[in-house]
Design a binder for these strands. Structure first.
Length: 478
RNA sequence: GCUCCCAUCGACUAGGGGUUAGGUCAUCACUCUUUCACAGUGGAAACACGGGUUCGAAUCCCGUUGGGAGCGCCA
């Protein structure tokens, strides 16, 4: 039981689930499931100024929708809660006092303006911008006085000087940094809320997290965390900093260059299975000569290992996602796919009350679309009336075309039902009878049935339209 | 600017001292379909550079260059 793997996804509720966060959550989830461990959701809502209404609910919804269900966290409970950091303020306060008492932290009283000024000077001198630790020299009495007079204050980490911090990251190997370059990070803000660094370390320890799997952007703050673990005398969890997801120009994936919210992709008609599959393969792969690209969730869980996560960032390539999504659509269970597509057809103004027809249409269009939101456009020709323009009218009105339509209509009247493969033989017979062949035969029929020069094969179109509709469209031109 | 991280086709990646450097997306050609797609076949396409170590380096080491991230009382 004590060796149980416990990982967490610890987002701050910004109102949507960023694709980068989705992948971090995904890796945590896969790692937990692979190891029969626990996947915990913790909400990092310590920034009062960035509160967003409904953000937490939205986050939980998306996580559930994506099938990344967690074992402990908001809504499902757990022994080591609460799982909202805003409800754990007392805990942070207590541990911060401990740090103060042991000399690992100290009070500081600078204003935001003073700190800005300090950084400006450092920048000009070509130094790393960081707190100059000036409040360290305050005497006990000076501190007492300032506290008594009610000057706003923060509590900062007292970084041990002139030494270095080394740690091993599962993905990156050994990393080291001199402590003189580590900032005396603010631990407790003047509003009494903890910063990420304090809350994160305390919660990970208290929630018995064994592996911290998070984005690469946290790598440089690991030394601060290690100093904290050491100050508390706690065991340091294993760490894995996963590479970033990049824009095509290799910068960190950002809103400015396209959609970054998971819900946007869902809305556009990417299947969650495809999205999961694709995101997992961004920065990870099963290796060992595996040449498959499509994996079920169960397969991913079985094969996933954090050691095989790449160390370099990965560009988010929508084209490959499109391809993969198309693969999923082509192979999806037709009934399930129908349920998923109907809303998109309705949104495109298509009446789906005839379920039999709807299913036929979906069967016909599934290999033509890579996203669900393309469905209505592809389905249109099976619903709307045919309107011909310009030279199409001439083609349809030509003498041979009329002969073809007439012969074809008669043949169809003689059969009871059009199937996916009895339409072509009928056309062949028409060809024999009328002597019209090639483009002169097929194009008029195509135009008569769809009004378009291009489209699916005629047999499929005729099957989906059905006998009555085909006859109707032919007769209209006679 | 400073610190840290990273480096195989355009993109995602496999490989990890001796390989014709493999696969997928995209791209190109051909085939199929008398349409467009789908599908199939084939092609073009990469080890950033320079030094070492070694009989041998894309692979190990160092450096250079390039890219990224971090440097908040945000997370």
């Amino acid at each position: 039981m004590n060796n149980e793997v416990r990982v967490r996804f610890a987002p701050s509720p910004t109102g949507y689930l960023h694709l980068g966060s989705l992948r971090t959550a995904l890796f945590n989830y896969l790692f937990a499931r692979h190891n029969n461990g626990k996947f915990i959701l913790r909400i990092e809502d310590t920034d009062q100024s960035r509160k967003v209404e409904g953000a937490v609910e939205n986050l939980i919804n998306i996580l559930n929708e994506m099938g990344l269900n967690y074992d402990e966290g908001p809504g499902v409970g757990g022994e080591l809660g609460p799982y909202f950091q805003s409800e754990r303020l007392e805990i942070y306060k207590k541990y911060c006092d401990e740090l103060l008492a042991n000399g690992h932290a100290y009070y500081a009283f600078e204003t935001a303006e003073e700190l800005d000024e300090m950084r400006k000077v450092q920048q000009m001198q070509g130094k790393q911008t960081m707190y100059d630790r000036r409040a360290r020299v305050l005497t006990e009495n000076e501190v007492k006085e300032k506290l008594a007079s009610g000057i706003p204050h923060v509590i900062r980490l007292k970084v041990p000087l002139d030494t270095e911090i080394r740690f091993t990251d599962i993905i990156r190997g050994n990393v080291k940094i001199e402590t003189n370059l580590v900032d005396d990070q603010v631990l407790l803000k003047s509003d009494g809320f903890p910063t990420y660094h304090l809350a994160n370390v305390i919660d990970d320890h208290l929630m018995q997290i064994t592996h911290i799997i998070r984005g690469e952007e946290w790598l440089t703050s690991v030394p601060k965390h290690i100093i904290l673990y050491n100050a508390f005398g706690w065991e340091i969890p294993k760490m894995a900093h996963v590479p970033l997801i990049l824009n095509p120009d290799k910068t960190k994936l950002s809103k400015r260059q396209g959609d970054v919210a998971t819900e946007d992709y869902l809305k556009k008609g990417y299947l969650k299975e495809a999205l999961l599959n694709f995101m997992t393969l961004l920065g990870w792969n099963p290796g060992e000569g595996e040449e498959k690209e499509i994996f079920t969730k169960a397969e991913l869980i079985e094969k996933f290992s954090i050691e095989r996560v790449n160390s370099a960032g990965a560009v988010f390539n929508v084209e490959k996602l499109n391809w993969m999504n198309g693969e999923y659509i082509k192979n999806y269970d037709i009934d399930s796919l129908t349920v998923l597509i109907i809303p998109y057809l309705n949104a495109g103004g298509i009446d789906t009350s005839d379920l039999i027809k709807t299913k036929r249409v979906i069967f016909a269009i599934r290999s033509y679309i890579s996203k669900l939101d393309e469905a209505a456009e592809q389905a249109k020709l099976y619903y709307s009336d045919v309107t011909l323009t310009g030279e199409h009218i001439e083609i349809v009105k030509s003498e041979t075309s009329i002969q073809v339509f007439d012969a074809l209509a008669k043949k169809i009247e003689a059969i009871t039902e059009i199937t996916t493969d009895n339409f072509k033989p009928v056309l062949s017979e028409v060809q024999k009878e009328t002597g019209v062949k090639g483009k002169n035969l097929f194009m008029p029929v195509r135009l008569a049935l769809t009004g378009e020069e291009h489209g699916p094969e005629l047999g499929m179109i005729a099957y989906v339209l059905g006998r009555e509709e085909v006859l109707k469209r032919l007769r209209k031109l006679l």
